[in-house]
Design a protein around this nucleic acid. Structure first.
Length: 976
DNA sequence: ATGGTGCACTAACCTTTGCATAGC
DNA sequence: GGCTATGCTTTGGTTAGTGCACCA
């Protein structure tokens, strides 16, 4: 109840303030609400009381709140403080705090804030609530400003209960949903990447870029053996001429946005990166557009607030557009690339607000003021930082993070100047040619401001600067440099941050910015290729955060082909290169067969191991790549790159954390094996981690009982001993109860005997002889798969087929296909029978016949049943009518019409034999003449139909009599 | 402040081969 | 008497994920 009350009072709290800026961005619905609530003073008062209550409760619970929730509230305060321009008095702030937290609770759905509401609900339902003591508190003393009447239940939670956090674990459904969202998001981002890639191919944009390029830089297209160094001047020129600014062109198409970015020499990080790609392509350099697909988490509660805030806010328009606006602003003008996907929605809201530049200014000033006056540096930043990233900082503290925040704030303010300036500048820029001259003058002004930026970003990919995801390098180019390495190399070129060949820095930079590097995809020729391996050095950390590789490979397969078509020019290798490649292969091969001890000593410490560990799923690709190199003396860029990425896959350094070995693709540690796993062979030792030997993952074998292997169509070879025995308490008990029972896989002590794959051979089931199906001890055949069928038998998955076999006296066995867990126990599920192959046709024929007969019988039965039911119905109606006629009050006239109508319907519907009709027809005949043949009266809503005998007409041929009412209503009665 | 480790807790997963009774 | 349908009742061990305290 409390919750409902709070909910009903939420909206007016923060809107009691006169805040023009807010109004400007509110949608009409919100405005309406705002006005109505403001007008309603009583409601406001009531709401304030309610909110105060909630606030006190929250505050009183302070310590018991989870960290996230605390942070969340904290952020809500920040949002509101900023929004209100720090002009609110304490009470207002307090009120608004709750408002925003509640509003956000609504917005965030079932995520963090939802937990909060869930808490409340849980507390209502929970027995703890009922058992809770009512502290004897003097309300007036504790809350002098509390005017509310009635009982307030205060929580006095023990520290223990405060410690225990209500944990809501994700259900299977949540997981499935999260995976679906992840997949859909991936597809969307892939599509987006292709779109950008297409825009980079735009000849007009390329030509425009080339026209801006100084002549000496044009020479680069003539370089035969391009190296990363050759790109330096070009990238520097680009970096100094094109800058990131926050204005998003969300309302325009990407292509026109790109053109605009080109004109104004500034745009989103995505646009700037795309422009760099277009420039490189214009210079005839083989170039890809690379993007980190910053996709929604694969896990249900991963990046909780990030999802809820960014996504949910955009779904639900209205009140949150205000908060969205506030959130977006600081980022809007940050100089480092932000997350375009998430920013976009925000920036749409921002765009609206930007139309009124004076209001913008006000908001920025507000932001600054807030910072200077109240000094919590988090004020502006907090909007941008999801809960997970927020820390509860005391005001006035000057730690490293705070300084960084301050620095960023300054950057934001500077950028604001650029932003507002550019609005004016934008109108001046009409065409590219004139732009170039204009730009130089305007550019100087911009440059002054951006010197700040250069100092941060040009030194490298900007650091986190205290804010999550700020400055994450999300887009860059890859230029194929034929002069690099032996065979050429795709070189990472981040023109936004002026970094060349910094592939090893990307992961660190994204980690610093808390953007998980899960998918780095290169786009070219409308295709795409996953190049995450190039940028990710710690694959084991992201492997679990990526979608099922089979699905991902299938999705990318057609795109890979397209990409390969665009970038897969044949690279002709000279003898020297081929020798080198062959040498590389030899080394790899020899290491494969190396003595394990040698390996162990070589990799004693955490060294990159270059063992040719077999990664089964990618093996085919690797083989094909190797094959193409060996045999054709010419390899495509694609296959060479595949090989490079494969090498990275197989040479991942040993993790230093023991836990990393738990599900590592390549390495395993004995301590993390499950009870059904074993190391076979137990070696080679690839290295040690905290004193524990590390083995290749390929040595990990799964063990199963004989029975289990049989299900897979495999049986244990003769004379093979179990490699492991497991005690199974349940089975042990069972064995004790029924000692007579014998299980193959259990020895006399009730130990489950397990075997490994290397001890198996294909199953050899007894043949069906003389039409007899070999069965198990239960007289069944377990059909887990086709492999489990005894030779010479077939599985007939037909209902009731066993009766046919039985009737024909053919030997059969019920086919057990699985189990169903019901009523606390496993129930075998049967589906059809297993018979000898020679009887298949006979049985099927007989079955078909039998089914036909059965269907005919069923039809007949149904029909007779229908008939008898109609008979019953009409009999009862007629009986009722008779009774009404004899004893009723004369109000039964309606029934007569119903009888007629039913009779008609019956005649119309029953197209059975004449006998049937006759059988049914009697009912109408049995109805007294006075009712059927005399004037019939049937009521309607405001009129009773009267059928006079003289107005009847009849058709002799069709035996249909038409009875008419004077109102025009007529009834067709079929004479029987 | 961050990340690793160990422990505790718990939801999800995996396991897996009726019985009595009524009605036809 | 035999067959079929229906209702009854609702495992328990293992694994993986999570939170937390502690430590380096």
């Amino acid at each position: 109840m409390a919750r409902t009350e709070e909910d009903s009072k939420k909206p007016n709290q923060s809107f009691g303030k006169d805040n023009g800026r807010m109004k400007a961005v509110h949608d009409s619905g919100s405005e309406r609400r705002l006005r109505s609530h403001t007008a309603n003073g009583t409601l406001t008062e009531n709401s304030q009381k309610g909110v105060k209550k909630l606030l006190r409760r929250i505050n009183s619970r302070g310590s018991s709140r989870t960290k996230n929730q605390d942070n969340y509230l904290h952020r809500c305060v920040s949002i509101d403080m900023t929004e209100s321009g720090a002009i609110l008095n304490d009470e207002q702030v307090e009120d608004a705090r709750v408002t925003w937290s509640d509003l956000d609770a609504e917005r965030c759905g079932r995520e963090a804030p939802a937990d909060m509401s869930k808490d409340s609900r849980d507390e209502m339902d929970d027995s703890d609530w009922e058992d809770g003591s009512l502290p004897r508190l003097d309300l007036a003393d504790n809350h002098p400003d509390d005017h509310c009447k009635g009982v307030t239940v205060e929580f006095s939670e023990s520290p223990d209960s405060a410690k225990r956090k209500p944990v809501r674990r994700a259900s299977a459904e949540d997981k499935e949903l999260a995976e679906l969202v992840h997949k859909v998001h991936l597809l969307c981002l892939l599509a987006r990447g292709r779109l950008i890639d297409g825009a980079c191919d735009d000849p007009l944009i390329q030509a425009s870029l080339l026209s801006l390029l100084p002549t000496h830089l044009l020479m680069i297209s003539g370089v035969s053996k391009l190296t990363a160094n050759d790109l330096n001047p070009l990238v520097n020129w680009f970096h100094s001429n094109f800058h990131v600014r926050g204005l998003d062109s969300a309302e325009k198409s990407f292509r026109s946005g790109l053109a605009f970015a080109l004109e104004s020499r500034g745009g989103t990080p995505e646009e700037i990166a795309a422009l760099s790609v277009a420039l490189f392509r214009g210079l005839k350099l083989t170039t890809r557009f690379v993007s980190i697909l910053d996709v929604a988490s694969l896990k249900p509660d991963g990046q909780k607030c990030e999802f809820s805030i960014h996504d949910a806010s955009t779904v639900r328009k209205g009140i949150f557009s205000t908060s969205t606006l506030m959130v977006a602003k600081p980022r809007q003008f940050t100089l480092s690339p932000g997350k375009s996907f998430r920013c976009n929605e925000k920036e749409i809201a921002c765009d609206t607000s930007l139309r009124d530049s004076s209001k913008n200014k006000e908001s920025y000033t507000t932001c600054t003021n807030t910072q200077s006056k109240d000094s919590p540096n988090t004020d502006c930043e907090a909007h941008d930082i999801p809960d997970s990233c927020l820390t509860n900082r005391s005001p006035g503290s000057k730690r490293k993070g705070d300084l960084e925040l301050q620095m960023q704030l300054e950057m934001a303010i500077s950028a604001t100047a650029v932003g507002t300036h550019e609005n004016n500048y934008e109108s001046a820029v009409k065409n590219l040619r004139s732009n170039s001259s204009n730009a130089s003058s305007s550019h100087k002004r911009i440059k002054r401001i951006q010197s700040v930026e250069s100092s941060t970003s040009s030194q490298g990919i900007s650091t986190a600067v205290g804010s999550k995801k700020l400055g994450s390098p999300l887009y860059w180019a890859e230029v194929y440099c034929s002069g690099e390495n032996l065979t050429g190399k795709w070189v990472h070129v981040d023109a936004v941050n002026a970094i060349i060949d910094g592939e090893d820095k990307v992961e660190a930079a994204t980690a610093a910015c808390k953007t998980p590097l899960r998918y780095a995809v290169a786009f070219s020729g409308s295709g795409a290729k996953d190049v995450t391996r190039r940028y990710c050095m710690k694959w084991y950390k992201i492997a679990s955060k990526r979608v099922n590789p089979i699905w991902w490979d299938a999705v990318l397969a057609p795109l890979r082909q397209l990409e390969s078509g665009a970038a897969g020019d044949v690279v002709h290798l000279d003898k020297h290169h081929v020798d080198a490649l062959n040498e590389h292969e030899k080394i790899t091969a020899s290491r494969k067969s190396d003595d394990p001890i040698k390996d162990a000593s070589r990799d004693h410490v955490n060294m990159p191991t270059e063992l040719g560990l077999e990664a089964s799923k990618d093996n085919d690709r690797k083989t094909s790549a190797e094959f193409s190199v060996r045999n054709s003396f010419a390899a495509t860029r694609t296959s060479l790159e595949d090989m490079e990425l494969e090498t990275r896959t197989l040479t991942e350094p040993l993790p230093t954390s023991q836990q990393a070995y738990k599900n590592h693709e390549l390495y395993a540690m004995e301590r993390w094996l499950t009870k059904y796993q074993i190391l076979h062979p137990k070696g080679p030792v690839l290295g040690f981690c905290s004193g524990h030997p590390v083995y290749p993952r390929t040595c990990v074998q799964t063990l199963k009982t004989k029975q289990r292997w049989l299900r897979e169509g495999l049986q244990v070879k003769a004379n093979e001993l179990p490699v492991k025995g497991l005690e199974n308490l349940a089975k042990l008990k069972k064995l004790q109860v029924s000692e007579a029972e014998e299980y193959d896989e259990y020895d006399s002590k009730g130990i489950m005997q397990l075997y490994g794959k290397w001890q198996l051979e294909p199953i050899c089931l007894p043949h069906a002889v003389n039409g007899i199906v070999p069965k198990n001890e239960r007289g069944q055949v377990e059909v887990w798969s086709e492999k489990c069928l005894p030779p010479g038998t077939v599985h007939l998955r037909l209902q009731r087929v066993f009766s046919v076999a039985k009737r024909l006296e053919i030997d059969y066995a019920p086919a057990m296909v699985g189990f169903e867990f019901r009523n606390g126990r496993s129930i075998p599920v049967f589906d059809g029978i297993v018979v000898c192959a020679e009887y298949e046709d006979v049985i099927l024929e007989a079955y078909a016949e039998e089914e036909e007969m059965r269907e005919a019988e069923e039809k007949k039965r149904n029909e007779s049943q229908a008939l008898s039911r109609w008979y019953q119905l009409l009999s009862s109606v007629v009986t009722r009518q008779k009774l009404n006629h004899c004893y009723g009050d004369g109000l039964s006239s309606g029934t007569s019409k119903n009888v007629q109508t039913m009779g008609n319907k019956l005649n119309a519907r029953v197209d059975g034999s004449l006998d049937d009709r006759q059988q049914l027809g009697f009912q109408l005949r049995d109805v007294p003449d006075s009712k059927l043949n005399g004037p019939l009266v049937a009521p309607t809503e405001d009129h009773e139909h009267v059928y006079l005998t003289e107005e009847q007409s009849s058709d002799e041929e069709s035996m249909v009599r038409i009875k008419r009412c004077h109102c025009g209503f007529s009834v067709h009665v079929e004479e029987l």
